[in-house]
Amino acid sequence: MGQLSGPTDPAADARWEDQQPRKGFFTDTSICIGCKACEVACKEWNHNPQDGNLELLESSYDNTGGLGASTWRHVAFVEQGQERITEARESGRALVNLGMPRIGPPPTAASAGPDLANVDTTPPDTADFRWLMSSDVCKHCTHAGCLDVCPTGALFRTEFGTVVVQDDVCNGCGTCVAGCPFGVIERRSDGMVAVAAQREEQHAKHPAVPNVGVAQKCTLCYDRLVNDETPACAKACPTTSIKFGNHDDMVETARERVVSLHQQGLTEARLYGANELDGVGGTGAVFLLLDEPEVYGLPPDPRVPTADLPQMYRRAGMAVAGMVAAAALAFLGGRA
């Protein structure tokens, strides 16, 4: 058992001998165009079945809804007006002024100072409307709640520091689903959906759903990584919004990108998951966001529940002692 919280190297914690550099994503949402190529590529590569009922969700161009057992990449669409843009810019500026930590030394001297007050904040693009698009994925947390609580060992830490389910070991107990602070992993139901009558034949041809009753999530394309290939989603991304590489390089790239956006006056830009001191020890998949995380459906202050596990066991121990004492008292305290 490695450490339960704080900065660490997850693959080393898992005692890999032929450990590889930790792999990760940097998803730069500022250049995402919402094409959903990643969603499609992921589905195709991993043979993931249809998710949901082909219904329109009335949430901009997002008809996928969210990450789940059969959706391992999900593109979020958020429409915002001027007021919200201003607020996002302010909240981003507040982050800078708070002196939120920067990982490593700032790459350029110009970016170091918090003197963004004087920066011309005229946005280079649309001022009164914007469309946020962000491709969400499993975070491959340094301290992964899903992995920690899995009783069967179906979830494991790979030599690349990623988190993967072994489909043939998982017994579908569902503990991991509740253990993930990001709401990523899910148990796959049989995936049978009601289909429109006129398309019946077409849908009847759908192959049987694989891995029913088993927890499913992004594997960071483990099968491709072991063959030195880029994950399908990153490969398919036409704008390089999804960047894949060594985790350290990803964090570095993310830092440079946020600095250059700040220099353009886009103080709303911020990183999500790049801080190894956060509640999950930093994430393997780092994001550049243009608003508060909850706007994208991400938790604002996630914390791996297992970080408190020693405390929970202590409390449970006290409760057990209390129960035994009560029983002893009931029998010893004279005949009632």
Binding site: M1, L4, D148, V149, C150, P151, T152, G153, A154, V169, C170, N171, G172, C173, G174, T175, R187, R188, V212, G213, V214, A215, T306, L309, M312
Partner: peptide, 20 residues
């Protein structure tokens, strides 16, 4: 369980981080 026939996998390992 999602896969009741695999219930014995619960005893496949002892994992202190997993209350289950």
């Amino acid at each position: 369980l999602g896969r009741p026939e695999r219930f014995l996998n619960m005893l496949r390992t002892i994992k202190l981080t997993s209350p289950m």
